[in-house]
């Protein structure tokens, strides 16, 4: 036996910094992603920048993946994270869709 089973596994000392940094980056990249999508839709940025937006979303996923591995997540947390990431992907698009719809309706 390799010692007791921990349901909250011990985090390596050297892992704390990467964990905190990646957890912050998840949301920071997320904000970049949502921000760039919005700016493109508002035509403040060229369409091309959408690639950059998705690139940030991929970075966000990577950070999330990295975080969930580093904290030795159980399947549940992994699923929760996947749901959250999917929500992030969709949310700016949904927002913008709603904005256009409501403008069509109320501005004319």
């Amino acid at each position: 036996m390799s010692g007791p089973l921990y349901v909250r596994p011990i985090i390596e000392l050297n892992d704390f910094l990467p964990i905190f940094v990646s957890a912050s980056l998840i949301l920071i990249f997320g904000a970049f992603y949502a921000g760039i999508v919005t700016l493109v839709k508002m035509q403040k940025l060229k369409k091309l920048y959408m690639f950059l937006a998705y690139f940030f979303w991929i970075l966000q996923i990577y950070c999330t993946y990295f975080l969930t591995m580093k904290i030795h997540s159980q399947p549940f947390t992994v699923k929760a994270m996947m749901i959250a990431m999917f929500a992030y992907l969709m949310v700016p698009h949904i927002y913008y869709y709603l904005i256009t719809k409501s403008e069509e309706r109320y501005e004319k």
Binding site: Y97, L98, K101, S102, E104, R105, Y106, K108
Partner: peptide, 10 residues
């Protein structure tokens, strides 16, 4: 006057 109104903007 309401043209094609979508529930999403309701």
């Amino acid at each position: 006057s309401r043209k094609k109104v979508s529930v999403w903007s309701d």
